[in-house]
Design a protein around this nucleic acid. Structure first.
Lengths: 199, 199
DNA sequence: GAAAAAAATTGAACACTGTTCATTTTTGTT
DNA sequence: AACAAAAATGAACAGTGTTCAATTTTTTTC
């Protein structure tokens, strides 16, 4: 293992650990043991473990964006929104442990501001969906459309936290894909009505 | 402090700590110090700290149910659903630290089954909303209606996790009440459409 | 009421966190 | 090769949850 890219090695090894053994398993000492670097080196590179997890979340968000952006040209606006949602769910289900970490970060960084680097990534994903939204509801004025989109996106995002654990299984036998798709389509149908009422 | 109701004293003191200083502040030793009981006593009474938090969550859910059930007789079914949502948001905002703990429990109890005692409380709240739902959408057959309700309830529930922290503030200047009310009303409008299409 | 038995309470100790920083090792320069 | 600068190290600190032998309190028995 070459010495000139410690940071990269640590991030890769850490990502393996999270994927395979879960977010709880990722501790400074376990990462140290698994990577071969000392605990001190980890702290020299990342300052603290929160920053390390933040970098992992950057990668996860980038990975999600990469998958969603592939769908940019496909189908109608309506079909595309369904594709985005489906792809989003698939991504979350395929990367449960990584996505859990993204949610955990949001919840446990109570009064700390999100960095611009972080926000840029979220905005990037939101803008992707916004273009389809614009095509689907051309008559909804901009402020309302952005509001509607934010509500929908936040709902799906927060709902996705349930997909990373099996907490849902206790409450309902509802299929996780159906859950999100029903939310999307019912919500979209609702906007359509409210759009026409407004005219 | 009388000795014959240790459990009650500990629960009350713990609840104070959570409310005032946040969920992170609640540790075995801090609770021990604040209550006057030793760490060992806490473990004799509750087995472990997770069980202690579980009891706190029971109380929180009971408290929420109590507030929602007061609205049972008021207004039309549609108005009632809006009242439920508004009351729910108010409750969450008034009890951020307690509600945070409810969400945290869901997320971190990955492969552990929820106890019947816990589920009973959630079902209780769901049934409260279900009756209004039934009155509002009499034409939607039972399985679909339950599905729709579960999706809406889970969306609002998961969305409420964002209300306990100020994570949202970084993303959007959207008002938290507006956020939830828009989700509710757009979703309800959507069901109305899908209900008519089905006929 | 005193002595014995049972039950309840205790807190030091264990294994684990994140984090720091004096010491050692490695690297680069003269 | 000798020195200086930089980087890597891991023991140590303060904090978790949790356990359990020892102590204290309560109850029972005589």
């Amino acid at each position: 293992m070459s010495k000139d890219n410690i940071q990269e090695n640590l991030v890769n090894k850490g990502r393996e650990l999270i994927k395979e053994k879960g977010a709880e398993y990722l501790t400074a000492r376990k990462l140290s043991e698994a990577s071969g670097y000392s605990v001190g080196t980890i702290y020299n590179q990342f300052g603290n473990m929160d920053n390390f997890i933040l970098i992992q979340n950057y990668l996860t968000l980038d990975s999600l964006y990469a998958r969603l952006s592939k769908l940019q040209a496909s189908g109608t606006a309506y079909q595309r929104l369904n594709l985005y949602t489906k792809e989003f769910i698939d991504f979350v289900l395929e990367n449960k442990n990584l996505w859990f970490l993204v949610h955990n970060f949001h919840l446990h960084n109570n009064n700390r501001r999100f960095s611009k680097v972080y926000l840029r990534r979220v905005v990037q994903i939101t803008q992707l969906v916004e273009s389809s939204f614009k095509a689907l509801f051309p008559n909804v004025p901009l402020p309302e459309r952005i509001l509607s989109l934010q509500v929908l996106w936040l709902s799906l995002f927060s709902l996705s936290s349930f997909l990373t654990t099996d907490a849902l299984d206790s409450f309902s036998k509802i299929n996780k894909n159906t859950l999100c798709e029903l939310l999307l389509n019912t919500y979209l149908a609702g906007i359509k009505v409210l759009e026409q009422v407004q005219e």
